[in-house]
Every structure is written in C-alpha cells, then in structure tokens.
Design a protein around this nucleic acid. Structure first.
Lengths: 234, 234
DNA sequence: CGGGATCCGTAAAGATACTG
DNA sequence: CAGTATCTTTACGGATCCCG
C-alpha cells in the first residue's frame, strides 16, 4: 500500500489494506498451496524482489496471517495461521474470476517455463503412475539452452522433484512441445489428446505414461472453470 | 500496481494485476453496491483523490469491468459489465474474511460519520416504516458541529435521502449516541436493544420507529458474519 | 546455500488547487 | 458535476552485498 490506511470501518477496506498491495495476493497463493521456505516462495514469485518478499512476510506476520517458525535445522519456515488458511476462499474467488473473464490469449502472453514446471511439480498426481521411480523429460525446443530441458522425478513416497539439469536417471517418457502448448494444457484450455492430434505435442517412451498423461498431470486448480467471456476483455 | 505486470499466467496473478492496486477493491465495492456517478463514488471513497479515482475508472474500463455511459442529462455514469458484476463474489469473499478475522476494535478505529451515514442511507429498509414521509435525525454529541447532525429522509417510492443540513421537516425519531456505538450497531457487533440497555443509545420520538429500528436499519452486508478471531490480530 | 539487508533510480499515490 | 494540473511523498524494482 502506498501509505497509511483507507480509514474505513468496512471489512472490505480493512481486508484490502492487508491483501491488496503489490505481489501480496500472488504471494498468498503460494503460501496457501503450501510453500513455507523463503526460497521456495521465491520460485513461485520469481519477479518479486527478495527485499519486497521479506517486507511482505513481515507485514503478513504482523497482520496475523502467518507465523515464523525456526526449526532445528537453522532455516526459517512461514506457516499460515487459521486466519491465513481461511484466505483460500479469497484466493479461490480471485482465481475463479480470472479464469472466467480473461481470455486464454491474454494469460498465454505471460509464459514462464520455470513457473510452469514448478506448478506442475506441485500438482502432479503420482497415483496413476507405476510404483517405481518415474522420470519424465520435458523439451521446449524454441527456448534458450538454459530453459529448454526439464525433468520431473517421481519417487514413491517422496515429493516430486524438479530438475533443470539432467539428474542422470533413465527417462521413462519424453515430452516435446512448445511452451505455449504445455501452458495451455496445464490451464485446461486444451487437452493432451487434442494437442497430440494437432501435432503440437509429441510423446515418446512408456505407452502407459503417455496414455495417462492427462491424469497424472494434475492441471491448474482453476483448469476446470469454464470461460464466460468472449469479448469482455481486450 | 507499481509498474508492469506480474508476468504470470496464473489466473490469480492475472486478476490481481487488475484488482489489487491501491483503492481498487474499495472502489469496486462501491460500484458493486450500485453507485454509478463520479461524485457518488467519491462519497464512498472520500480519501481517494479525484485524480486517482479518474485513473482507476479508466483502468477498469480498459479491463472490461465497467463501461462509461453518457445519458442525455450531460453527466457520466459508470456501469459494471457482466465481468464487473461477477466481481461480487470476490468482494464478498474479501469482506467476509475481513469481518471474520479483524477484531471489532480494529475496525472501530476507523470511524467516519459521513461514510457511516452514506452506507446507512443505502441499506435502509423502508418496508417496516409507516407509508408516509419519515425523518430520522442522528446526533453524535462528541463530534464537531459540521459532523454532529444528520437526517435520513424516507419518502415512499423514492430513494432515501441523506442530509447534513436540516431539511426542515418534522422529525419522527431522534437518535443520539456516540459514533462508535452507531458504527458498532451498523456492523453487527452489538444490537440496538443492547445499546439502549447500556444507555449508549437514546431514542426519542415515534414508538414504532424506535421499536423497529433494528429492522429498518439495514445493517452492513457483512453484519451477519460471526467473528472467528480472538487473538489472531494485534 | 538459505535468508535476508542496502542503496539508488523510477513509478505510483497523496494533497491541494483549479477548470470547462 | 466531473474531472485536470501540479508538486511532494512514498513504494517498488533491480542490483549488489552480507552473514551464519
């Protein structure tokens, strides 16, 4: 917020003072989906400066939305309080509105492979996968060497791992497409099947993993919401 | 927003770019509850500078949230588009969260008689009132002369009128209390009955209007939501 | 390597005055 | 009524650096 408060007793204004400052809603989204470490949060809001992130975390702590926890290992963890967890309703409402009324074209102007892969890592559903280590390689041919290749490593009983350097494991499935296509799939704009039929997406390797990709790829939490706008936004 | 966009395809981020700039959420609240004229909007967001209000209105127009209409009488009206009307879900979520988790004490730090009276004017329910002109005078003894006296004039079939200078009509009901008490009643923190029993509120005049005040005084849209916080906010 | 703090240039917002 | 214009204050972005 630029300065001071709105000086209104209305609960919308009181809440907006805390929630509607730059980056705060996006940061809260990261916290609500479960990130707790400073550098994990940074991956979710990569264009936010660390200084501002630090400032916002302090503000949210003062506002009673999160608490700072220092576990034994020396790091710092940020955990939502009950008030903070209750913000999922606000995040949902905002995201639902965005998904309904923004044209896909507009969203697909803001492509970012590391953000996409980081989200995919979070929402990947391992249950349809075989009960062993599975490695999926993503190739975005049009991108720079540093952003072209990514690996998701799924190990039973562990968190999904995202690598931007070759982890050295055998790859079960090779995925190749442009970033826009993968983002559109992730956002529910098109399906894996449709992308393959349009030759926009190529899968090579394990047949089962190919077939089930639409399932184990968890998709954005808002992917199910249908668009309502046609021309509302320019 | 300070500059540029968040560069994220996530619908939360896309929406936050438009919705989470300073004053925007509060302004949208005014639009959602039905204000359409520049100077009516100003009464709802009195601390927002006209320059910023004008800028925000343009931004919201560009974002497809409202349209500018020039009726025959020369003025300008701002009307929400379908996308704008759909924002009521976001405003509700934000206001509900605020009402749940902010201590009443915090809200009641931001007292403003003109804002309160303006809100009361909007939500007053004339149906329990007799079918004739009713005038209710509010007295806040502790305030400066310019803010001490207010009148609500209810005429059957017309919009409720708010005056800060004596309209000259016979007064049906005299309400006297401090601003904090009236605001607390409006926000659902205490009832009219409780305030009267505590001697915080004095009603003189028409018995029926006195008895039914809790009914015709419409209360804040969020008054029904119960608090959940006790100590979450400092 | 995680978790920040510092400094400086730019962009946004506040205050107030003024106008078609 | 519906805004502009101007000037000052504050916040933010970006780079760099620091420390356990």
């Amino acid at each position: 917020m630029t300065q001071g408060s709105y000086h209104q007793f209305c609960p919308v204004a009181m809440a907006a003072e805390v929630l509607c400052t730059r980056w705060t809603m996006v940061l809260l989204r990261e916290l609500v989906v479960g990130s707790t470490r400073f550098n994990d949060l940074r991956r979710g809001v990569p264009r936010m400066s660390p200084a501002l992130l630090s400032k916002r975390l302090k503000e949210l702590e003062r506002a009673g939305i999160l608490t700072r926890i220092v576990p034994g290992d020396g790091g710092t963890e940020y955990h939502l309080t009950p008030a903070g967890r209750d913000l999922h309703a606000v995040i949902d409402a905002v995201g639902l509105w965005g998904q309904r009324w923004f044209e896909a074209d507009v969203s697909l102007k803001n492509l970012d492979p590391s953000l996409l892969m980081w989200d995919m890592r979070r929402w990947l559903d391992p249950t349809p996968l075989p009960d062993r280590r599975c490695v999926i390689q993503f190739l975005y041919p049009e991108l720079s060497p540093a952003q072209r290749l990514w690996w998701l490593v799924v190990q039973p009983g562990e968190e999904v791992d995202l690598c931007s350097v070759d982890p050295g494991f055998d790859v079960d499935l090779y995925v190749s497409c442009d970033l826009r296509t993968m983002t559109a799939i992730w956002m529910g704009v098109i399906t894996v099947r449709a992308a393959r039929e349009m030759q926009s997406l190529t899968l090579t390797g394990d047949r089962q993993l190919s077939r089930d990709m639409q399932t184990w790829l968890g998709l954005s939490p808002f992917a199910a919401e249908k668009k309502r706008a046609r021309e509302a936004l320019g």
